[in-house]
Design a protein around this nucleic acid. Sequence first.
RNA 1: UCCUCAAUAGCUCAGCUGGUAGAGCAUGCGGCUGUUAACCGCAGGGUCGUAGGUUCGAGUCCUACUUGAGGAGCCA
Length: 464
Amino acid sequence: MENITIKQLYRNMKDYVNKTIKVSGWVRTIRDSKAVGFIELNDGTFFKNVQIVFERETLSNFEEVCKFPSGSAIIVEGEVVETPQAKQPFEIKASKIEIEGLSTPDYPLQKKRHSFEFLRTIAHLRPRTNTFSAVFRVRSLVAYAIHKFFQERDFVYVHTPIITTSDCEGAGQMFWVSTFDPRDIPFDENNEVDYTKDFFGCKTGLTVSGQLAGEAYCMAFRKIYTFGPTFRAENSNTARHASEFWMVEPEIAFADLNDDMELAEEMIKYIINYALENAPEEMNFFNSFIDKELFKRLDNVVNSDFAHITYTEAIDILKKSGENFQYPVIWGSDLQTEHERYITEQVFKKPVFVTDYPKDIKAFYMRLNDDNKTVAAMDLLVPGVGEIIGGSQREERLDYLERRIDELGMKKEDYWWYLDLRRYGGTKHAGFGLGFERAIMYITGMTNIRDVIPFPRTPKSADF
RNA sequence: UCCUCAAUAGCUCAGCUGGUAGAGCAUGCGGCUGUUAACCGCAGGGUCGUAGGUUCGAGUCCUACUUGAGGAGCCA
């Protein structure tokens, strides 16, 4: 007998109607009465459940089935029957129900709403709930969409190192990687930690960004992207920060900041469309139960051009807004969250690129503009989530880059290979970093980054 | 790291100005000819986050700590 997935059933229902098939999955709930019972069965392949009907008269183990606790894994044989009047389009009249793995009555997932906080404490079971089933299927699809988007455009996927000596200057605190015995760390004659005795013979950490390495491959393949885990040891306690997250970092050669923004906008629209087209049930669920404005917002993103504004213009708008901001609006200081929110949520009500920030608040590798005060940087701000992308045109002029490294008191030797890229046929080039989880939050309407990562790592929390 | 709030049954919460704990859901048992967050009846279930303190008496007041949430900083 054919073993059918619930996805197949829903997608090609007509092929199975009035046929006897076999399905297997996990019991979400069971309701029973004297003569008949109903099982909500989910087999993992599809967001929706299939309803299994079982009757005392026709099922030999009726009593036993009634007592299956939620969560039990079962195998069902039965006939597919159309039910046009009912809530669900069809159901399965069971002729045989076998237990594969029994659950227990203390199964933590009840037939009721659970708080996301509680579900985080059972992160190993939460993918069995509607919300997390939807989140993580969408996460998977969007990851695929990102590869698809870049591969269709001839980008080369580069695996930049996870363990690295490059700390990308200011991108964030690193987790250090060492095989030292923490109770017995060797020191040199200056009483400094002697990293020459460590595993790699130097100080190493987990990557905070693959960008610098990405640039090297960009200078060979022209268009590249990275997509991998990123680690930041920042003591950030917000709904938008995690210590381990995934980042997408494309880098394009012979390209300037405008090309960079075009790419970013095209990519965001592409992945949103991909989710809407390939996970309609999940997206409908988000729109109904997580964020009632979701479709409205996403439609607005997909169908409108993103706004563009320079940092200086943004300061101007904020100053003239008449809003009573908690933090003063001063040219030269970074935009505060309240400022960013005002611009993207109140002024434009859609994604906004803010460009050309003062050089002193941005990283050393960003290209100096002709005004000598600002750099060719861009942040993409979106309503609700805030900064979802940060990018820039990179400084390709060797003398400018060296001068900047000196100004900031950094050591040129540490960047020898990065400077080489400018020495040996450097071109203008640009790139950006997309916070993958922030994109998932934006697409699903989930408001906490801990709920879009299977087993999230945040300060004081690395369970599972 | 800072500010604010929270922690009571498996879950979600109530518990007033201090007088030794309650509901709904879940679970168990029973009932119900088709339910769909099923319904009806009965039952079991709590050293009130931890450690101190004030008090005749603390879930309730005070202190510290832990964990969580929201906001801020940092960023993606």
